[in-house]
C-alpha cells in the first residue's frame, strides 16, 4: 500500500465507524476539493451508495459557479442534498460589510446549528484537515460538540488506537473528520489518481485560480498558470503561500478561526 492507499483505507474506516455508531448522520459538502474527496471516499466505503444526506450551508454569497457545479454533481453522482440558509439573518440584511467574523458566525455557524437542530443529526462528517490551520491541527477524528455546539478544545477526550468517542449525551453531536491526516498535496494527488470530478474554479482563468473555495466577497484568487491537476500538484510542491491565504476571515484576528470553531464553525 502506498501513502494514498493508507490514507484512503483509514478514511474509509472512519466513515464506516461513523455510519455504524452515530445514529442520524449527514455529510457537510462545501463543493470544494476536500469535501468532494470525502464524497468520493463515501462512495468507496459504501460500495457506490451514499447512505446519508449531504448538506450544504448556503450563505447566498457563494461564488455563483459553485452553486451551478453543486447541482450538476448532485445529479451525476446521485445523492440526497439538503441546502440550508439562515433565512432570518439574510432577511435582516446580514453580509460581510457587517464584519467578516460576524457574518461567518451568522451565515455559517448559526446556519449549521439550525440544520443540526432541524434534522436532529447526531453526527456531521466534515472534511477539515490538520494542515489547513492551527486549531484544526489539534482536532480529534471524532470531536464532540455540546448542546450549544461548543467545542471544549482545552479538554478533549482521549482518542487512541482508532477507538473513537461514540458515547455522548442526548443533544450533543459528533463532528467526524475523516480527512484530518491528509494534506493539500495528498488531496490533489488523490484527485489526480482517481480522475475525480472537480470544480473548474480551481484551474487558471486569466492567470488566476482559486486555491480554496468560499464566499465570493471574502475569497481571493492566487496567481497561477495551472490548468490541470498535474500542474496544480507541481505548483503546490514549490509554493510557500498558505492554502487559506485567500480567505479574508482568517486575518481578522490571530485566533479568528479558533474562536469561530469553538462556537461551532466547521
Amino acid at each position: 500500500m502506498d501513502h494514498l492507499d493508507e490514507l484512503e483505507a483509514e478514511s474509509v474506516y472512519i466513515l464506516r465507524e461513523a455510519y455504524k455508531l452515530l445514529g442520524k448522520l449527514a455529510m457537510l459538502w462545501s463543493i470544494g476539493k476536500d469535501s468532494t474527496v470525502l464524497l468520493w471516499l463515501a462512495k468507496k466505503a459504501f460500495f457506490g451508495h451514499v447512505p446519508f444526506p449531504l448538506v450544504h450551508v448556503d450563505t447566498s454569497y457563494k461564488i455563483p459557479e459553485m452553486i451551478r457545479y453543486r447541482d450538476q454533481l448532485a445529479r451525476e453522482l446521485g445523492f440526497e442534498l439538503i441546502v440550508h440558509s439562515n433565512q432570518e439573518a439574510l432577511a435582516a440584511g446580514m453580509g460581510p460589510e457587517q464584519g467578516r467574523l460576524i457574518c461567518c458566525a451568522a451565515l455559517k455557524t448559526e446556519a449549521l446549528q439550525q440544520l443540526v437542530r432541524l434534522h436532529k443529526f447526531n453526527g456531521l462528517i466534515v472534511g477539515v484537515r490538520r494542515d489547513e490551520e492551527g486549531s484544526r491541527s489539534k482536532e480529534r477524528v471524532f470531536s464532540e460538540r455540546n448542546a450549544t455546539d461548543n467545542w471544549d478544545y482545552a479538554n478533549q477526550p482521549p482518542e487512541l488506537w482508532n477507538q473513537f468517542k461514540t458515547d455522548f449525551p442526548p443533544g450533543h453531536h459528533i463532528r467526524v473528520h475523516p480527512l484530518l491526516q491528509w494534506n493539500e498535496l495528498d488531496i490533489w494527488r488523490y484527485i489526480g489518481r482517481e480522475k475525480m470530478p472537480i470544480s473548474d474554479l480551481y484551474f487558471t482563468h486569466d492567470g488566476e485560480r482559486y486555491r480554496s473555495l468560499g464566499c465570493s466577497p471574502c475569497t481571493g484568487r492566487v496567481k497561477s498558470q495551472a490548468s490541470t491537476v498535474a500542474e496544480i500538484i507541481q505548483e503546490l510542491e514549490s509554493t510557500t503561500v498558505g492554502e487559506r491565504s485567500g480567505r479574508a476571515q482568517d486575518r481578522e484576528d490571530a485566533y479568528a478561526l479558533q474562536k469561530l470553531r469553538k462556537a461551532g464553525y466547521m
Binding site: 489539534k138 478533549q156 490571530a254 479558533q258
Partner: peptide, 20 residues
C-alpha cells in the same frame, strides 16, 4: 505547533498534533 491562543499565551502545549 502550539496553535491555540491559550497554548501560545501560556507557553505550553495542551493538545497533540501531527505534522508531515
Amino acid at each position: 505547533l502550539d496553535a491555540f491562543e491559550e497554548e501560545q499565551k501560556q507557553g505550553i502545549t495542551i493538545d497533540t498534533t501531527r505534522l508531515n
